[in-house]
Amino acid sequence: MASRRDKQAAVSARQRIAEQQRAEQVRRKRTRMIMVGVAVVVALAMIIGAMLLANAARQREAAGEGSDAYVSGLSQVSAPQLDAVGVGAARDAATPVEGGEPVMVDGKPRVLYVGTEYCPYCGMERWALTIALSRFGTFDGLEASRTPANESSIPTVSYEHATFASDLIVFDGFETADAEGRPLQTLSADDDATLRQFNPGGSVPWTYWGTSHQLGASYDGGFLADANPDEVLARLGDANSSEAQGILGAANVHTARICALTGNQPGEVCDAPGVRAAAEFVG
């Protein structure tokens, strides 16, 4: 028969086991509560973050900044839209290069653009230039941008991270300073020498085709001041609007200059009525 001491030891062992089991249950319960609490905090953080992003988007639109949809929309302007405008309100701002020849890179003529992200006229010019270039190839990495609101802010795109792919031309766009005027991209020694040769003051925007170069914007984009870019893009569908007359007219002029480099290829672009009118306009 078990002694009294043995019985007491057995009882103590069972008590310790019971206490350990209770402690384990408490630990598991506490762990579950912590995990639930963490999940709730994460969920709340996600909800608050989404609300803040949505509110920021609403504030941008209320301030005239719009969404980023217009960036992709620049590559989707239709040929009928461009043809309906022709030259529009564009101006021939280019200067011929005496004895100039296209600059060939990998067997293709090159277009060079130099601007800054703080320059309002650069912001205007990138609308027309981007639409024109999109008729010959595809951009990747275009980003929505806006010039600083000194007197007025211009919605635009930035070429800083953009690349351009085309079977017909090479395009290099440089943003040499950011919206605060701080140095951004650096030209190669050859490009810097070309810029200084034809544009000693280094003013921007500056566009170079080899056969000609242009300083300044190719249209008056005053309507872009503090504008909502989504609304500007929508008004390009009205050939009589100031937006269409300026931006699409200038896009046709840029297209005509590029067609002169490519031997009027592709035909469906270079033979379009709006481009032919622009070609006659620039001579």
Rank of each mutant, 00 (worst) to 15 (best):
R5E: 15
R5V: 14
R5A: 15
D6S: 09
D6C: 10
A9W: 08
V11H: 11
V11D: 11
I17R: 11
I17L: 14
R22I: 14
R22Y: 13
Q25W: 11
R30D: 14
R32G: 12
R32E: 13
V36P: 01
V36C: 11
A39C: 09
V41T: 06
V42P: 03
I47F: 14
G49W: 07
L52P: 04
A54C: 08
N55K: 13
N55G: 14
A56W: 09
A57G: 09
A57Y: 05
E61W: 11
A62L: 13
G64S: 13
G66D: 00
S67M: 05
Y70T: 03
Y70W: 05
V71K: 01
L74A: 05
Q76H: 14
S78G: 08
S78L: 04
D92K: 12
A93K: 10
A93C: 09
A94M: 11
T95K: 12
P96N: 10
E98Y: 12
G99S: 10
G99V: 10
G99W: 07
G100P: 03
E101H: 10
V105E: 14
V105W: 06
D106K: 10
D106N: 15
D106G: 13
G107A: 07
P109A: 12
P109L: 05
P109D: 04
Y113D: 01
G115Y: 01
G115N: 02
E117R: 11
C119A: 10
C119D: 03
G123Y: 00
M124C: 11
M124I: 13
E125P: 04
A128M: 04
L129W: 02
L129E: 02
A132M: 05
A132N: 03
L133M: 06
G137S: 07
G141Q: 07
T147F: 10
P148A: 12
N150R: 08
S152P: 02
S152Y: 12
S153L: 03
I154W: 01
T163G: 13
F164D: 00
D167S: 13
V170T: 13
G173L: 03
E175C: 08
L184G: 09
Q185P: 09
T186M: 15
L187K: 08
S188G: 15
A189I: 10
D190P: 06
D191T: 11
D192S: 15
A193C: 07
A193M: 06
A193N: 08
F198G: 06
P200H: 11
G202D: 02
P205Y: 02
P205S: 09
W206L: 04
W206P: 02
T207F: 06
W209P: 01
W209F: 15
W209L: 15
G210Q: 03
T211I: 15
S212V: 08
G216T: 06
Y219S: 03
G221F: 02
G222K: 02
G222A: 08
A225C: 07
D226T: 07
D226P: 06
N228W: 04
V232M: 02
G237F: 02
A239D: 01
A239E: 00
S242T: 12
G246V: 04
G246A: 07
I247H: 01
G249R: 00
A251Y: 01
N252R: 04
A256T: 03
A256Q: 00
T262F: 07
G263E: 03
Q265Y: 08
P266T: 05
P266M: 07
P266L: 07
G267H: 13
C270V: 06
P273K: 06
V275A: 03
A278F: 05
F281V: 04
